[in-house]
Design a protein around this nucleic acid. Structure first.
Length: 263
DNA sequence: ATGGCCAATATGATTGGA
């Protein structure tokens, strides 16, 4: 069973690319970020026509996350616990029935946090603390459980072509990486790092300054696996070639193959 | 030459992204 995540940078502008990639990869579940539209404007029918159920948590203009699933959703819950005043659409949780049990999946868009000397950075850090508190609760359930999305965190120097360019950036500051490790140390497995220690595994290339042709990439889109999900990991990968398509997103899809059969 | 982008919005300049 394939589960993937992709920050698409506008689901409406990227619809053709997304449908082409779905036909090529045929994932069972897809976590989308930066859909950049309200729920009513999400191109739901285009995905239903090719066999997906749709769950959306959008907002006007920016942010927004969604889930696609070939199997129906048993439960869907938008929003991250811990701050009722947070109106940014960055989190959606769902449960899907699979053969022999369930799979719990989160599509998340962690705040960027730049510039670091502003309230944008404190919002990022607080959001990470809320995500850790949420995860601590969910891990107690001992289920196959995935946190997938755009984490806006470069975990280690080898996750950037030029780490020196990022030392003062909210994506790579020591405090950001400390908070990320506080999350992963609860017991998550980084799916990509479980299958490869190689440098040069990137998921984002800026539109600016020729980042793509120079391969100036960073790895910021992650799939974190609960212990029960990690036990099922068969393979993981990054669909890098999608960055070279016409009108690309600046991010590419990341996927895991789990030893689970659809129900 | 040592910079270069993109998307959404009561839009033709601003905001956010990373």
């Amino acid at each position: 069973m394939l589960v993937a995540t992709w920050n698409v940078n506008s689901v409406r502008l990227r619809l053709g690319n997304i449908l082409a990639w779905l036909a090529e990869r045929s994932p069972d579940i897809v976590c989308l970020q930066e859909i950049k539209c309200v729920d009513e404007a999400f191109p739901r029918e285009a995905f239903e026509r090719v066999g997906y159920n749709v769950a959306v948590h959008g907002q006007k203009g920016f942010n927004g996350v969604a889930l696609l699933s070939k199997a129906p959703f048993d439960e869907v819950s938008p929003g991250l616990m811990g701050d009722d005043s947070d109106v940014q659409a960055r989190f959606i949780e769902a449960i899907v029935s699979v053969k022999g049990g369930i799979l719990r999946v989160i599509s998340l868009y962690l705040p960027n946090g730049n510039p670091p000397d502003t309230d944008k950075y404190s919002y990022k850090i607080k959001w990470m603390e809320r995500l850790t508190a949420f995860s601590r609760e969910r891990l107690k359930l001992e289920e196959p459980f995935l946190l997938a999305g755009d984490f806006n965190v470069i975990p280690a120097p080898k996750d950037a072509k030029s780490p020196g360019n990022w030392v003062n950036d909210a994506l790579f500051l020591p405090k950001t990486r400390e908070k990320y490790h506080a999350l992963t140390n609860l017991g998550f497995t980084d799916a990509i790092r479980a299958v490869s220690d190689d440098p040069g595994l990137y998921t984002f290339w800026d539109y600016q300054a020729g980042a793509w042709p120079k391969n100036e990439g960073i790895r910021i889109d992650h799939i974190l696996l609960s212990p029960q999900a990690a036990d099922l990991l068969k393979s993981a990968g990054i669909d890098k070639h999608v960055r070279g398509w016409e009108k690309p997103s600046d991010h590419v899809p990341v996927y895991v193959d789990l030893a689970i059969e659809p129900r």
